[in-house]
């Protein structure tokens, strides 16, 4: 069976490409580190890949807003290639800084036309600073998102300073809720599943005071997905925050299901 090929973008301060490549390989794909400039110069073609991943990091140091400058590089330098890739129904994921990039370039929450118009943003956490701590996410079972299919809850680290999901048009939040695009939300792990709600949860259960506790969103087709937390950082049980207190059979961590989903999706198509 052919392994799906994943383009894992790198360069300009992206810094989670090593582990992002590793989790796709663990999930049965072949992952290449692809410097953004290789795509811009045309020495590598996005169309040779079935999945694109924009990993976390600090592209351009987060100056002028996290993800903004790399988003511009893609929006202006790779506009048609990205639109074609997404319109062709290939899965795309952006994690943390990669999610910020997808939001700032208008691919998320996005629209059916893939118009690349920014409609939401990720503002500075209410705490005013960067934080690394673990959070529990819950996923919307009714969402079209192929990445989170069948997932209920996972525990993952958040590592960001600008992760508060907001928009300037309140009607959009309702629209995205209805279309299942607000697919990943912070929840209190002590509440019984399912518990995702619109009321902002207290800090630090919601580490950034995101509107409606949103941690990740998908586009209308469910193929493009982005989230602030880092599922790739929980690829093995021994990376969990409290694994030394739990009786676990060691093996894959809770974050891996997301990458398995995308690989399975490509193999089925």
């Amino acid at each position: 069976m052919m392994k799906p090929k994943v383009a894992v973008l790198s360069g300009f301060g992206i810094n989670c490409e090593t582990e992002t490549m590793a989790v796709f390989e663990m999930a049965g794909a072949t992952a290449d580190r692809v410097h953004v400039n290789r795509l811009v110069m045309g020495t590598t073609q996005l169309s040779d890949y079935q999945i694109m991943a924009i990993p976390g990091g600090f592209s351009f140091g987060d100056h002028l807003g996290s993800g903004r400058l790399l988003g511009n590089r893609l929006r202006f330098g790779l506009r048609e290639e990205v639109r074609e890739f997404v319109s062709a129904g290939n899965p795309v994921i952006g994690i943390c800084n990669g999610f910020q990039v997808l939001v700032k370039m208008g691919l998320l929450p996005g629209d059916d036309q893939v118009s690349l118009t920014q409609t939401a943003s990720l503002a500075l956490n209410d705490s005013g600073h960067y934080e690394n701590r673990w959070a529990t996410l819950e996923f919307d079972q009714a969402s079209p998102c192929i990445w989170t299919n069948g997932l209920e809850r996972i525990r993952v680290p958040v590592r960001h300073g600008e992760g508060k999901f907001v928009t300037d048009d309140p009607n959009l939040m309702d629209k995205w809720t209805e279309s299942g695009q607000l697919v990943a939300r912070y929840v209190d792990p002590s509440d019984e599943y399912p518990s995702a709600g619109d009321e902002t949860l207290p800090y630090p259960i919601s580490p950034n005071q995101s509107w409606r506790n949103v941690a990740g969103v998908c586009n209308p087709s469910g193929m493009v997905f982005g989230m602030m937390p880092h599922p790739e950082a929980n690829h093995s049980t021994w990376l969990g925050a409290t694994w030394t207190r739990e009786e676990t059979e060691h093996g894959e961590g809770e974050g891996m299901a997301i990458f398995h989903n995308a690989v399975r999706h490509v193999l089925r198509v």
């Binding site: 989790v23 976390g56 790739e232 990376l239």
Partner: peptide, 15 residues
């Protein structure tokens, strides 16, 4: 300490 990233590279076992 929480404002340092201690988990990038996805390798952190004892944090």
């Amino acid at each position: 300490v929480r404002s340092y990233d201690h988990e990038v590279i996805a390798q952190s076992v004892i944090k």
